[in-house]
C-alpha cells in the first residue's frame, strides 16, 4: 500500500486533548469529530487539510488520554498517514487497531518540512520526500501487527480468528 500527500507538521508532545478536545467527546461520529480535529493546537487545520495529506510530528505524538476518538478524528479528517519521532503507546495501539497508518521514523520526522510532498510505501517502510529528493526508512512492523493492519484493524483480525 502506498500513499502520497502534502505534509502538515507539528512539534513534540501533541496530546489527545488538542487532537480532539474532550468537550466534543459526547459523540463518536467520525465526521463530527473530524470537524474539531486539532482545534486547540491549530485552528486552521480543519480548513486546510486535504484528503491524502500526511501528518508529521516530533516526539510522543498522541500522549495523554486513551480516547480512540483521536486517531478516528485524524483518519476522518482525510490524513492518510502519521509519521512521528515516537508515538505515545496507547495512541500507537489505537491507530493500528482502527487502521490509521502510522510510522515511527525519527530521521524523517526531523527532516521533513511543512508543505513537503511525501510518499510512503508501507510494505517496505520507505518514506520518500519528493520535494527534497530524499529517502528515509522506518522500521517495519512486526509480523503480528502487519496481520492486524492487513485485516483492516483489530476487529477484522478477531473476526477472522473467531470464524
Amino acid at each position: 500500500m502506498n500513499v502520497k500527500g502534502k505534509v502538515i507538521k507539528y512539534g513534540d508532545n501533541v496530546d489527545t486533548d488538542v487532537i480532539i478536545p474532550a468537550r466534543y467527546l459526547n459523540t463518536s461520529d467520525p465526521a463530527e469529530l473530524a470537524r474539531h480535529c486539532m482545534e486547540d493546537l491549530d485552528k486552521t487545520f480543519v480548513s486546510r487539510v486535504n484528503k491524502g495529506d500526511i501528518l508529521v510530528a516530533g516526539k510522543n505524538f498522541g500522549c495523554g488520554s486513551s480516547r480512540e476518538h483521536a486517531p478516528i478524528a485524524i483518519k476522518a479528517s482525510g490524513i492518510s498517514c502519521v509519521i512521528a519521532e515516537t508515538f505515545a503507546r496507547i495512541f500507537f495501539r489505537n491507530a493500528i487497531n482502527i487502521g490509521l497508518p502510522i510510522l515511527e521514523c525519527p530521521e524523517a520526522a526531523r527532516d521533513i518540512s511543512e508543505g513537503d510532498e511525501v510518499s510512503v510505501d508501507f510494505t517496505t517502510g520507505v518514506i520518500t520526500n519528493i520535494t527534497k529528493g530524499k529517502q528515509y526508512t522506518a522500521a517495519p512492523f512486526p509480523e503480528f501487527m502487519q496481520e492486524i493492519i492487513a485485516a483492516g484493524g483489530l476487529v477484522g483480525y478477531i473476526r477472522k480468528q473467531l470464524a
Binding site: R93, N94, G153, V155, I158, L162
Partner: peptide, 13 residues
C-alpha cells in the same frame, strides 16, 4: 490503558 477497540476485543475474547 488501551483504546475502545482493545476493550471490545477484550470483552469478546
Amino acid at each position: 490503558g488501551v483504546g475502545s477497540t482493545d476493550m471490545a476485543a477484550g470483552m469478546a475474547t
